[in-house]
Design a protein around this nucleic acid. Structure first.
Length: 278
DNA sequence: CGCATCCTCCGGTTGC
DNA sequence: TGCAACCGGAGGATG
Protein backbone atom coordinates (compact mmCIF):
# COMPACT_ATOMS: atom_id res chain seq x y z
CA UNK A 1 0.00 0.00 0.00
CA UNK A 2 2.04 2.92 -1.16
CA UNK A 3 1.76 5.86 1.22
CA UNK A 4 4.10 8.82 1.54
CA UNK A 5 7.31 6.87 2.35
CA UNK A 6 6.71 4.30 -0.37
CA UNK A 7 5.79 6.88 -3.01
CA UNK A 8 8.82 8.93 -1.99
CA UNK A 9 11.05 5.90 -2.54
CA UNK A 10 9.52 5.26 -5.95
CA UNK A 11 10.38 8.82 -6.93
CA UNK A 12 13.87 8.60 -5.42
CA UNK A 13 14.59 5.36 -7.26
CA UNK A 14 13.30 6.78 -10.53
CA UNK A 15 14.39 10.36 -10.80
CA UNK A 16 18.01 10.01 -11.90
CA UNK A 17 17.13 7.37 -14.46
CA UNK A 18 14.35 9.18 -16.24
CA UNK A 19 15.03 12.87 -15.86
CA UNK A 20 15.90 14.21 -19.30
CA UNK A 21 14.72 11.06 -21.08
CA UNK A 22 12.23 11.25 -23.92
CA UNK A 23 9.29 8.86 -24.18
CA UNK A 24 9.67 7.42 -27.65
CA UNK A 25 6.78 4.98 -27.64
CA UNK A 26 3.78 4.22 -25.49
CA UNK A 27 1.61 1.12 -25.37
CA UNK A 28 -1.59 1.01 -23.34
CA UNK A 29 -2.69 -2.52 -22.51
CA UNK A 30 -5.52 -1.48 -20.15
CA UNK A 31 -7.31 1.55 -21.51
CA UNK A 32 -9.51 2.00 -18.46
CA UNK A 33 -6.48 2.82 -16.30
CA UNK A 34 -6.03 5.94 -18.40
CA UNK A 35 -8.29 8.34 -16.52
CA UNK A 36 -7.45 11.32 -18.75
CA UNK A 37 -7.62 12.02 -21.63
CA UNK A 38 -10.73 10.14 -22.62
CA UNK A 39 -9.15 7.56 -24.88
CA UNK A 40 -5.97 5.57 -24.65
CA UNK A 41 -5.05 6.39 -28.23
CA UNK A 42 -5.05 10.11 -27.48
CA UNK A 43 -2.95 9.43 -24.37
CA UNK A 44 -0.47 7.43 -26.45
CA UNK A 45 -0.27 10.00 -29.21
CA UNK A 46 0.14 12.91 -26.79
CA UNK A 47 2.79 11.35 -24.58
CA UNK A 48 5.02 10.08 -27.37
CA UNK A 49 7.88 12.50 -27.97
CA UNK A 50 7.56 14.11 -24.56
CA UNK A 51 10.72 14.72 -22.57
CA UNK A 52 10.52 14.07 -18.85
CA UNK A 53 11.65 17.30 -17.25
CA UNK A 54 11.11 16.42 -13.62
CA UNK A 55 9.46 13.89 -11.29
CA UNK A 56 8.06 14.69 -7.88
CA UNK A 57 5.74 13.46 -5.20
CA UNK A 58 2.60 15.43 -4.36
CA UNK A 59 1.00 13.71 -1.38
CA UNK A 60 0.64 10.14 -2.61
CA UNK A 61 0.65 11.19 -6.27
CA UNK A 62 3.66 10.93 -8.54
CA UNK A 63 3.82 13.81 -11.00
CA UNK A 64 6.01 13.71 -14.12
CA UNK A 65 6.41 17.11 -15.68
CA UNK A 66 7.04 16.73 -19.40
CA UNK A 67 7.59 19.13 -22.27
CA UNK A 68 3.89 19.91 -22.67
CA UNK A 69 2.04 17.94 -19.99
CA UNK A 70 1.84 16.71 -16.45
CA UNK A 71 1.65 12.93 -16.17
CA UNK A 72 -0.09 12.23 -12.88
CA UNK A 73 0.15 8.75 -11.44
CA UNK A 74 -1.53 7.25 -8.39
CA UNK A 75 -0.51 3.79 -7.20
CA UNK A 76 -3.52 3.27 -4.93
CA UNK A 77 -2.94 -0.02 -3.09
CA UNK A 78 -1.14 -2.34 -5.46
CA UNK A 79 0.27 -0.08 -8.16
CA UNK A 80 3.93 -0.01 -9.11
CA UNK A 81 6.15 1.96 -11.45
CA UNK A 82 8.87 -0.43 -12.54
CA UNK A 83 11.95 0.60 -14.45
CA UNK A 84 13.71 -2.03 -16.52
CA UNK A 85 16.97 -1.87 -18.43
CA UNK A 86 16.85 -3.05 -22.03
CA UNK A 87 16.09 -6.77 -22.14
CA UNK A 88 15.13 -7.04 -18.45
CA UNK A 89 11.75 -8.13 -17.13
CA UNK A 90 9.59 -6.75 -14.36
CA UNK A 91 9.45 -8.85 -11.16
CA UNK A 92 7.35 -11.97 -11.81
CA UNK A 93 4.38 -11.02 -9.67
CA UNK A 94 3.75 -7.99 -11.87
CA UNK A 95 4.24 -9.69 -15.23
CA UNK A 96 0.53 -10.21 -15.82
CA UNK A 97 -0.33 -6.79 -14.44
CA UNK A 98 1.61 -4.54 -16.79
CA UNK A 99 -0.89 -2.00 -18.04
CA UNK A 100 1.04 0.89 -19.59
CA UNK A 101 4.44 0.66 -21.25
CA UNK A 102 6.58 3.75 -21.68
CA UNK A 103 9.56 3.13 -23.92
CA UNK A 104 12.42 5.57 -23.38
CA UNK A 105 15.03 6.91 -25.77
CA UNK A 106 17.77 4.75 -24.22
CA UNK A 107 15.68 1.59 -24.85
CA UNK A 108 14.92 1.19 -21.16
CA UNK A 109 11.24 0.82 -20.25
CA UNK A 110 9.07 2.28 -17.54
CA UNK A 111 6.05 0.11 -16.76
CA UNK A 112 2.91 1.12 -14.95
CA UNK A 113 1.66 -2.01 -13.22
CA UNK A 114 -1.24 -2.51 -10.85
CA UNK A 115 -2.52 -5.85 -9.55
CA UNK A 116 -5.93 -4.68 -8.37
CA UNK A 117 -6.17 -1.81 -10.84
CA UNK A 118 -7.35 0.82 -8.39
CA UNK A 119 -4.68 3.26 -9.44
CA UNK A 120 -4.36 5.06 -12.72
CA UNK A 121 -2.67 7.60 -14.96
CA UNK A 122 -3.71 11.05 -16.14
CA UNK A 123 -2.01 13.12 -18.79
CA UNK A 124 -3.01 16.70 -18.10
CA UNK A 125 -2.29 20.00 -19.79
CA UNK A 126 -0.84 22.66 -17.48
CA UNK A 127 -4.31 24.20 -17.20
CA UNK A 128 -5.94 20.89 -16.40
CA UNK A 129 -3.22 20.15 -13.87
CA UNK A 130 -3.73 23.44 -12.06
CA UNK A 131 -7.48 22.69 -11.99
CA UNK A 132 -7.01 19.12 -10.78
CA UNK A 133 -8.70 19.41 -7.42
CA UNK A 134 -7.31 16.31 -5.66
CA UNK A 135 -3.80 17.76 -5.96
CA UNK A 136 -4.79 21.40 -5.71
CA UNK A 137 -6.59 20.80 -2.42
CA UNK A 138 -3.93 18.61 -0.80
CA UNK A 139 -3.14 19.52 2.77
CA UNK A 140 0.45 20.38 3.74
CA UNK A 141 3.15 17.85 3.08
CA UNK A 142 4.43 16.79 6.53
CA UNK A 143 7.99 17.76 5.55
CA UNK A 144 7.18 21.18 4.16
CA UNK A 145 7.69 24.51 5.91
CA UNK A 146 4.79 25.56 8.13
CA UNK A 147 3.27 22.06 7.83
CA UNK A 148 2.49 21.89 11.53
CA UNK A 149 0.83 25.30 11.60
CA UNK A 150 -1.27 24.49 8.54
CA UNK A 151 -2.17 21.05 9.88
CA UNK A 152 -3.27 22.52 13.18
CA UNK A 153 -5.26 25.18 11.40
CA UNK A 154 -7.02 22.52 9.28
CA UNK A 155 -7.92 20.63 12.45
CA UNK A 156 -9.76 23.72 13.63
CA UNK A 157 -12.40 23.68 10.89
CA UNK A 158 -15.88 22.82 12.20
CA UNK A 159 -16.45 19.78 9.95
CA UNK A 160 -13.07 18.36 10.95
CA UNK A 161 -13.68 18.98 14.66
CA UNK A 162 -16.62 16.59 14.76
CA UNK A 163 -14.75 13.67 13.17
CA UNK A 164 -12.41 11.14 14.75
CA UNK A 165 -8.68 11.86 14.61
CA UNK A 166 -8.06 8.66 12.65
CA UNK A 167 -10.55 9.60 9.97
CA UNK A 168 -9.03 13.06 9.73
CA UNK A 169 -5.45 11.79 9.40
CA UNK A 170 -6.58 9.86 6.32
CA UNK A 171 -8.07 13.01 4.81
CA UNK A 172 -5.54 14.16 2.20
CA UNK A 173 -6.81 17.74 2.41
CA UNK A 174 -5.88 17.97 6.10
CA UNK A 175 -2.36 16.51 5.91
CA UNK A 176 -1.12 14.86 2.74
CA UNK A 177 0.52 11.49 2.26
CA UNK A 178 -0.83 9.59 5.26
CA UNK A 179 -2.66 6.29 4.71
CA UNK A 180 -3.97 3.61 7.00
CA UNK A 181 -0.62 2.20 8.13
CA UNK A 182 1.04 5.48 9.12
CA UNK A 183 -2.14 6.88 10.66
CA UNK A 184 -2.25 3.83 12.97
CA UNK A 185 1.47 4.01 13.74
CA UNK A 186 1.48 7.77 14.35
CA UNK A 187 -1.43 7.59 16.77
CA UNK A 188 0.16 4.68 18.59
CA UNK A 189 3.44 6.57 19.02
CA UNK A 190 1.53 9.64 20.21
CA UNK A 191 -0.55 7.47 22.57
CA UNK A 192 -3.77 8.94 21.22
CA UNK A 193 -6.84 6.77 20.75
CA UNK A 194 -7.92 6.75 17.08
CA UNK A 195 -11.60 6.95 18.02
CA UNK A 196 -11.11 10.27 19.79
CA UNK A 197 -12.99 13.22 18.33
CA UNK A 198 -10.74 16.01 17.09
CA UNK A 199 -12.70 18.48 19.26
CA UNK A 200 -11.49 16.65 22.38
CA UNK A 201 -7.80 16.56 21.48
CA UNK A 202 -5.44 18.89 23.31
CA UNK A 203 -2.80 21.09 21.70
CA UNK A 204 -0.12 18.95 23.31
CA UNK A 205 -1.62 15.86 21.70
CA UNK A 206 -1.86 17.56 18.31
CA UNK A 207 1.80 18.45 18.57
CA UNK A 208 2.69 14.91 19.58
CA UNK A 209 0.66 13.34 16.76
CA UNK A 210 2.32 15.55 14.18
CA UNK A 211 5.88 15.12 15.44
CA UNK A 212 5.63 11.36 15.99
CA UNK A 213 4.01 10.81 12.61
CA UNK A 214 6.68 12.86 10.89
CA UNK A 215 9.44 10.93 12.65
CA UNK A 216 7.87 7.62 11.62
CA UNK A 217 7.50 8.76 8.02
CA UNK A 218 11.13 9.85 7.90
CA UNK A 219 12.29 6.60 9.44
CA UNK A 220 10.24 4.61 6.96
CA UNK A 221 11.56 6.62 4.02
CA UNK A 222 15.10 5.87 5.11
CA UNK A 223 14.27 2.17 5.37
CA UNK A 224 12.79 2.06 1.88
CA UNK A 225 9.16 2.14 3.02
CA UNK A 226 6.91 -0.72 4.17
CA UNK A 227 6.48 -3.75 1.93
CA UNK A 228 3.38 -5.31 3.47
CA UNK A 229 2.26 -7.24 0.44
CA UNK A 230 3.14 -5.92 -2.97
CA UNK A 231 5.12 -2.73 -2.61
CA UNK A 232 8.51 -2.34 -4.27
CA UNK A 233 10.35 0.67 -5.64
CA UNK A 234 11.07 1.28 -9.34
CA UNK A 235 14.07 -1.08 -9.15
CA UNK A 236 11.92 -3.89 -7.74
CA UNK A 237 13.53 -3.46 -4.30
CA UNK A 238 11.34 -3.91 -1.24
CA UNK A 239 11.42 -1.76 1.87
CA UNK A 240 12.04 -3.02 5.40
CA UNK A 241 9.90 -0.73 7.53
CA UNK A 242 7.25 -3.46 7.83
CA UNK A 243 9.69 -5.03 10.30
CA UNK A 244 9.49 -1.96 12.53
CA UNK A 245 5.72 -1.49 12.70
CA UNK A 246 4.46 -1.31 16.28
CA UNK A 247 0.71 -1.77 16.00
CA UNK A 248 -0.49 -2.07 12.40
CA UNK A 249 -1.33 -5.71 11.71
CA UNK A 250 -0.14 -6.73 15.19
CA UNK A 251 -1.82 -9.09 17.66
CA UNK A 252 -0.27 -7.71 20.85
CA UNK A 253 0.92 -4.30 21.98
CA UNK A 254 4.75 -4.27 22.04
CA UNK A 255 4.65 -1.92 25.07
CA UNK A 256 2.13 -3.55 27.43
CA UNK A 257 1.21 -6.86 25.76
CA UNK A 258 -2.49 -5.99 25.70
CA UNK A 259 -4.28 -7.54 22.74
CA UNK A 260 -4.36 -4.98 19.94
CA UNK A 261 -7.87 -3.72 19.18
CA UNK A 262 -9.20 -3.74 15.65
CA UNK A 263 -12.00 -1.41 14.71
CA UNK A 264 -13.33 -0.09 11.46
CA UNK A 265 -13.08 3.68 11.28
CA UNK A 266 -14.12 5.39 8.07
CA UNK A 267 -14.32 1.94 6.43
CA UNK A 268 -10.71 1.12 7.23
CA UNK A 269 -9.43 -1.42 9.69
CA UNK A 270 -7.77 0.51 12.50
CA UNK A 271 -5.27 -1.07 14.87
CA UNK A 272 -4.67 0.41 18.32
CA UNK A 273 -3.88 -0.45 21.91
CA UNK A 274 -6.78 0.50 24.16
CA UNK A 275 -4.43 0.51 27.17
CA UNK A 276 -1.67 2.73 25.78
CA UNK A 277 -3.82 4.99 23.61
CA UNK A 278 -6.21 7.15 25.61
C1' DC B 1 -24.73 25.52 -7.63
C1' DG B 2 -21.89 23.75 -3.97
C1' DC B 3 -21.47 20.33 -0.97
C1' DA B 4 -21.93 15.71 1.13
C1' DT B 5 -22.74 11.02 0.48
C1' DC B 6 -22.83 6.91 -2.45
C1' DC B 7 -20.89 3.76 -5.44
C1' DT B 8 -17.48 1.66 -8.21
C1' DC B 9 -13.08 0.22 -9.72
C1' DC B 10 -10.30 -5.15 -8.83
C1' DG B 11 -7.85 -9.71 -7.72
C1' DG B 12 -5.45 -11.85 -3.91
C1' DT B 13 -6.61 -13.57 0.40
C1' DT B 14 -9.50 -15.43 3.86
C1' DG B 15 -13.06 -18.13 5.54
C1' DC B 16 -16.79 -21.22 5.22
C1' DT C 1 -11.13 -28.19 -2.74
C1' DG C 2 -14.30 -24.72 -4.45
C1' DC C 3 -16.67 -20.75 -4.08
C1' DA C 4 -18.24 -16.45 -1.96
C1' DA C 5 -17.15 -12.73 0.91
C1' DC C 6 -13.97 -9.39 2.01
C1' DC C 7 -10.77 -5.42 1.52
C1' DG C 8 -9.89 -0.38 0.30
C1' DG C 9 -7.87 5.27 -2.01
C1' DA C 10 -9.81 8.03 -4.83
C1' DG C 11 -12.93 10.35 -7.64
C1' DG C 12 -16.98 10.54 -10.58
C1' DA C 13 -21.93 10.28 -10.03
C1' DT C 14 -25.79 11.28 -7.61
C1' DG C 15 -28.74 13.60 -4.42
Amino acid sequence: MPELPEVENVVLSLIDKIKGRTITHCTVLRPNLIRKPTTASIFQADIEGQEIIHVEREGKYIVFRTTDYYLVCHLAMTGALLYTKFGQNVPAKYTNHRHVILQLDNDDILYYCDIRRFGGLRLLTPTEYHDFLPIQTLGPDPFSDYAFTLFKSNLGSPDVQKKTIKEVLLDQSVLSGIGNIYACEGLFAAKVNPTKLVSTITDIEIDKIFQETKTILQDSISKGGSSISDYMNADGVKGTYQNYLQVYGKKQCPVCNTNVSRKKIAERTTYYCSTCQK
